[in-house]
Design a protein around this nucleic acid. Structure first.
Lengths: 174, 174
DNA sequence: TACTGATATGTCAGTTTCTACATGTCAATC
DNA sequence: GATTGACATGTAGAAACTGACATATCAGTA
């Protein structure tokens, strides 16, 4: 269900798009929240078209199909959002690794954490740049709340990794 | 691989445990990072035993099997941790919903966010209590870094939901 | 003209995960 | 003695997801 809803959301927010576009949009806009490959997206779009949630609006060069969300799709998305009890549990390998840190020798753990802090910092910089670009384009308000969340997540992870590395070094020496 | 490594980590940290224990430990200690049901855990433990990563140390009442991590299991876990090239993408339905908020009318979005803020706040309180209990038991240092991360995550999500609800209300009125 | 890289869509086999079903023991209480 | 709830392990079918394979077009450039 989540993939369907993510695709409907992207179509609603960004307007009509092809499977190829959606694959890239996933990467660019919500990769820190949900992830899907083209091998999952293409079949799903076909099923969604069969179920009347999207329509093929135009056919472009290279077999391109432009999908658009339907009334039905929009209705279903809103229902799902308001509906109380989904909540697929989080799966975050980065956080899992954090839990497993005690298995390593302190210097190894510190090296791992410094590396992660760097990666999170890079991702943070990319998201902040994206945010600035959106601000310049004048796209304000509603659409940027998720981006704000992404930025907060990356900043939190970076700070945690950095501070935990510091703490381990301090405890190791102390 | 992640499930295997999570189970090895739990066995290493908490000592020998049964599938039943591990199911509850998952819930209690790393549910905000990784999740698994007993229907996934029991078969995995059997496979891990066949692969020599764990051994059945004792057989208790009601068919209980006490698993312990082996040398080989410990080695594999450390290898996996240090090895660079994993990074399963994050899947977080809460964050996905954040992205989809623009689909709702402002009052609906605000109600949704207030509800989530409350849930995150409750989870935060539970983790903080767990942390205090650990501190009282004198379990300090290394083992608590993951718990610290969990606390930061819950606080971040709660604050984001609360502040975003405020912003939407402000924008809606303004 | 040939090559390269981005665009574009698909399938398939294997792995992971979810939901539901299924079974039985032991301790405490009524 | 019967019931209840926590303990304890499993299976099976379906859905979601991954990684690799497969194919073809179009634009720009060497």
């Amino acid at each position: 269900m989540s993939l369907r809803m993510a695709l409907l959301g992207l179509l609603a927010v960004s307007g009509p798009a092809s499977g190829y576009d959606l694959t890239k949009l996933f990467e660019k806009s919500i990769s820190h929240a949900w992830h899907a490959r083209h091998s999952q997206i293409y079949p799903e779009l076909n099923k969604m078209a069969a179920d009347g949630l999207v329509t093929v609006q135009e056919e472009g060069p290279r077999g391109r199909k432009g999908y658009a969300i339907t009334e039905e799709g929009s209705r279903r998305l809103r229902e799902w959002l308001v509906g109380t009890e989904h909540f697929r549990p989080v799966r975050d390998e980065g956080a899992l690794r954090a839990f497993l840190l005690p298995m390593l020798e302190p210097p190894e753990a510190v090296a791992l954490l410094r590396g992660e802090a760097e990666r999170y910092g890079a991702k943070l910089a990319a998201l902040e740049e994206f945010d600035r670009a959106k601000a310049r384009e004048g796209k304000s308000g509603f659409g940027r709340y998720a981006l704000d969340l992404g930025i907060r997540q990356m900043r939190m992870m970076r700070d945690w990794a950095e501070e935990t590395a510091d703490r381990i070094e301090r405890d190791d020496r102390g």
